[in-house]
């Protein structure tokens, strides 16, 4: 019974963070038609850069966080422009360059920061939900994630750049006929997805230990969620995030954290076996 409560509460929290993380991932995935394998590294990068700002450069938190986010967004843009865009017509090249960038980051982090987990400051205090003590940090995360989801929806449906992103994700040829430049749209998605990776990185680093390899598992989760939900299908992504978050947390509380690592693997395998084109439509 106790476990069920934990699963319910933390499943919801995790689902929400996965949703935000996946939305950022799906922007580039939808437009470029290729998964950005550096996305997990961006998540870790923000955690480490905030850590460095706080502990080595003694920057105050209210400065360290926005600077780190901007830095990650800029790096995301730089990666996209330099290693994804030039090879976009040749998927295997993009896989190689992006995985290479991810490995470079991983090595840099472990050379410079070591393998010992680091953490960022937690938002203080706890609140009791259904009799379970929950860190107030989770409430902060919930607020920020909800705001970011709504912001992205507003951006995609109300602004011209957002509409262009949706058009290109739908069809490159059609959008070009409408006078949209897909490559410029791609640039916008690199930037925005960088912000989304960065924010989730900063928010989760205090709760999850930050290690050089910590970015992989969210990357796979995002891939599984976006494919399951259907690329460009926001509602599908929401449902898929819920499914993923609850499956993962159930595994954590029932089977233990070690075995929960295989959650994304199991999910991708299930999708592949039963619905290779996504549960909710257009998945490549």
């Amino acid at each position: 019974m106790e476990e069920l409560k934990y699963i319910l509460i933390f499943g919801s929290f995790h689902s929400l963070t996965y949703l935000v993380f996946s939305l950022g991932f799906s922007l580039v995935f939808g437009v470029a038609r290729l998964p950005n394998l550096t996305y997990g590294a961006l998540y870790v990068l923000t955690g480490y850069s905030t850590y460095v700002f706080l502990n080595y450069l003694n920057t105050p938190l209210y400065l360290a966080v926005p600077v780190s986010i901007l830095l990650t967004a800029a790096i995301s843009l730089a990666i996209g422009e330099s290693v994804i865009k030039p090879a976009i017509k040749f998927p295997v090249s993009v896989f190689i360059t992006t995985v290479a960038v991810a490995y470079i980051f991983e090595e840099l982090f472990s050379i410079q920061m070591g393998l010992k987990p680091v953490t960022l400051p937690l938002y203080p205090g706890t609140t009791s939900i259904l009799g379970i003590p929950v860190s107030n940090h989770w409430l902060l995360i919930t607020a920020v994630c909800l705001a970011m989801t709504l912001a992205l929806l507003a951006f995609l449906y109300k602004t011209s750049t957002g509409k262009a992103i949706r058009a290109v994700a739908e069809s490159w040829e059609e959008s070009m006929r409408l006078g949209i430049n897909p490559l410029r749209v791609l640039r916008a998605t690199f930037l925005i997805s960088g912000v989304y990776a960065a924010l989730t990185g900063i928010l989760l680093a205090p709760l999850k230990a930050l290690t050089p390899t910590a970015g992989w598992s969210p990357l796979f989760a995002a891939f599984a969620i976006v494919v399951m939900g259907g690329i460009g299908n926001i509602l599908g992504t929401v449902v898929a995030s819920l499914v993923y978050g609850f499956i993962e947390q159930s595994m954590v509380y029932v089977l233990g954290g070690g075995i929960a690592r295989v959650a994304p693997l199991i999910l991708i395998l299930l999708i592949l076996v039963f619905r290779p084109h996504g549960l909710f439509g257009r998945g490549e």
Binding site: L34, P35, L37, P91, F95, V99, T213, W216, S217, F220, F223, V227, G256, G257, G258, I259, R261, V262, P264, L265, I268, L269, L272, P276, E284
Partner: peptide, 23 residues
């Protein structure tokens, strides 16, 4: 499509996690 490469990237990472974690 991308499934194969993603699966292939994922598996060694999962295995590295498994062999070093309980049980």
């Amino acid at each position: 499509g991308a499934y194969f490469s993603i699966m292939s990237l994922l598996l060694p990472i999962v295995m590295a996690g498994i062999v070093t974690s309980q049980p």
